[in-house]
């Protein structure tokens, strides 16, 4: 069955428009503009020139529209559709929340493919917990949770992802991880439908000038789940980006050394003196 799903997936592997000039995640691109590192469907995001917007394009998937869900009122005004033919531009309303869920769905008889991702806007509003909990398609790969502000997926870390089908957790479900740095791994969900995904430490050593604040190295990754029910095959992906490990290009020993230096500088304060200690 998996082979047939993959063959069907091939029907969707057509070129899709990409946001011009964007390099999401640092992954390599083929000459066609498609990411060369995976054949799975992806949603590729690129910040627009204006601070408020992001351009979204589907890769490895032909889907008519992009579904956007905001944390605030995700079942009503917080859910809207944008045409994907030439790439969609998402502009959040004020105060609707930071993370927006993005999904593109392509359906054929006996086969459904969904590419999903999330995008973080610096936009006040509710937390995305309820929005993530809500059923948005048949087969879903849901981060539980998304990285918090001041955080992100990083190499060497384990993050839980839930696989749901028709809103119910899928136990024993295989999840495939592929990264733009060339890694591939498989995981299986537990009884609660959750798999702990360990991001591979596959970044090359930073070159001089790389990795500073504002120049964080990132690479794309995709998690894919395939499932069959009622004679229909389902493929759903979640793609996002991850960065080097927490201690990449950092020295714990140097840090501890300076802390000890500071302690040493304060030691004279602890010595007792016979003269008046005030002042």
């Amino acid at each position: 069955m998996k082979t047939s799903l993959s063959l069907l997936l091939g029907c969707f592997l057509t070129s899709a428009a990409f946001a011009a000039g964007h390099d999401h995640g640092g992954g390599e691109r083929a000459a066609s503009g498609l990411p060369a590192w995976t054949h799975y469907p992806l949603l590729v995001t690129a910040r627009g020139g204006d601070r408020g917007g992001v351009r979204v394009a589907a890769a490895n998937l032909v889907a008519p529209v992009l579904d956007v869900y905001a944390p605030k009122n995700w079942s009503g005004e917080g859910h809207w559709e944008l045409p994907l033919s030439a790439g969609a531009e998402v502009r959040p309303s004020p105060e609707v929340g930071n993370y927006h869920w993005l999904a593109a769905r392509a359906a054929m008889p006996e086969y459904v493919a969904v590419a999903s991702s999330a995008f973080y806007f610096a936009n006040p509003g509710p937390a995305p917990t309820a929005m993530l909990d809500a059923k948005k398609s048949e087969l879903e790969v849901i981060p539980r949770p998304l990285p918090r502000e001041h955080a992100g997926y990083r190499a060497g870390e384990e993050w839980p992802f839930m696989v749901r089908f028709q809103g119910e957790p899928l136990k024993g479900q295989k999840l495939v991880l592929e990264t733009a740095n060339g890694s591939r791994a498989e995981f299986v969900t537990d009884g609660g439908g959750v798999a702990k995904i360990r991001f591979p430490d596959d970044f090359k050593p930073a070159r001089s000038g790389e990795g500073g604040h504002g120049m964080r190295r990132q690479a794309g990754f995709v998690l894919a789940a395939e499932h069959e029910a009622g004679g229909t095959g389902y493929l759903t992906t979640f793609n996002y980006s991850y960065g080097p490990g927490a201690y990449d290009n950092k020295s714990l020993w140097a840090g501890a050394g300076f802390a000890v230096l500071g302690m040493g500088m304060a030691l004279p304060l602890l010595r007792r003196r016979k003269e008046n200690q005030n002042g």
């Binding site: 290009n249 300076f258 030691l267 304060l269």
Partner: peptide
């Protein structure tokens, strides 16, 4: 606690931070 090992401003800020932290910890005893 780990600081940037590549020199430059981030290394300097990390060194100041950790030295200040260590100093404050011990100085707080007195």
């Amino acid at each position: 606690l780990a600081i940037r090992a590549n020199g430059g401003i981030e290394f300097a800020l990390g060194a100041v931070a950790n030295t200040l932290f260590g100093f404050a910890l011990v100085a707080s005893l007195a």
